[in-house]
Nucleic acid binder design. Sequence first.
DNA 1: TCATTAAGTATGC
DNA 2: GCATACTTAATGA
Length: 232
Amino acid sequence: MSKIDESLLTNLPPFRHLERAQIREILDLSSVRRYDEGTAVFTEGMEADRFYLLLDGYIRVIRTSPSGEHIIAMHIAAGQLFGIAPAIGRDTYPATATAAMETIALSWPVRLWHDFVANYEGFASETYKIVGQRMQNLHEQVLELATQAVEQRLASALLRMANQSGRKVENGIEIAFPVTRQNISDMTGTTLHTVSRLLSAWQKQGIVESTRRHIVVTRPHDLMLLSTSSAQ
DNA sequence: TCATTAAGTATGC
DNA sequence: GCATACTTAATGA
């Protein structure tokens, strides 16, 4: 079916312990799809019929509150599993996943989940490790939202993106997918205006450089300080 | 300290 | 030239 090379999976944590032949099996059971920027891979509440591995691009995970506003819970980088509802014992997706830029993902029918867990050494432990880490991150973010000022939350959000999905450039760390002021306000529970003002101020101080949908963190250390200490 | 309103400029198909 | 992204100032909770 898919003519994806085995080497693409061999170094990813959930597949690290597997033989080449096993990886071939897994790939033969998968289907590949490309998603244009802004396209939803699946939506919150939808029956979880497949689980996914991101091969290229970035996925934005969006949760919608009953009152209608949506918040960006996290970003997924290439090489990570997502839409793994079966891992947390759900049969619907807990959030919406959209392509933050042009993206390519593998997917498998959920009925294979238990086969993977049973047959492939390390798959279960690695995926549950991922789930645990994500849960912990979410808890930290909830705490942040409740306790920290906007400036600190924005600094943390920028650092999270730079650390998890940044690429090094000459003058700093560039966030590797397109991101708008509105997107960032959806991560930090503020408005795009406040984000715009803070980014402008930080740009004047030389901490970040930003153009439309594009941000480079030039002085991560200064952001670190901003994210922890409360000014005045 | 921050959201809201409002009114503007810049950018890219 | 229109939609989208971004900036800035004013006002008030």
